[in-house]
Amino acid sequence: MKNNLKLHINGRDHEINVDPGTPLLYVLRNELKLNGPKFGCGLQQCGACMVLIDGEARPSCRMPVGTVLKSKITTLKGLIGNDGALHPVQKAFVKEQAAQCGYCLNGMVISSVALLEKNKNPSDIEIRQELAINICRCGVHSRVIKAVKTAAQDL
């Protein structure tokens, strides 16, 4: 059944009329027109749909929206400053040209932001472990690792 739900997304409150069982991914993409989180598998296996839930990188494809009403939800749009400036992680991905098709980029950036929040200077191995959920078919892994390190210096 549809309910009026209050969500806190990218620093703003939103009221949305939706079934609380709907996975967060579809609410973000379709109700709020946020393109960051992508549908990749719907099985929490690939990381394409990741968002920050209270600062933690989590897949949104199976997360019922009703379970995150009290959380701060952040997507790629929410990382951008009020002046339009990119977050250092976003900037680093552009600088290192760490993408090919870019479909996985959302998850990569979200995972990297969460990692750098708790570890300001991660090693290669720590980066690899933290991003293990993020599938990339194009093979830009080495550039992503470089981008995370570049971002770590700028943060």
Binding site: N35, I80, Q90, A99, Y103, L105
Partner: peptide, 13 residues
């Protein structure tokens, strides 16, 4: 790539 990291529209999806 900047369009992508900003989460702007780019894909058929």
């Amino acid at each position: 790539i900047e369009t992508m990291v900003r989460g702007d529209q780019i894909f058929v999806q």
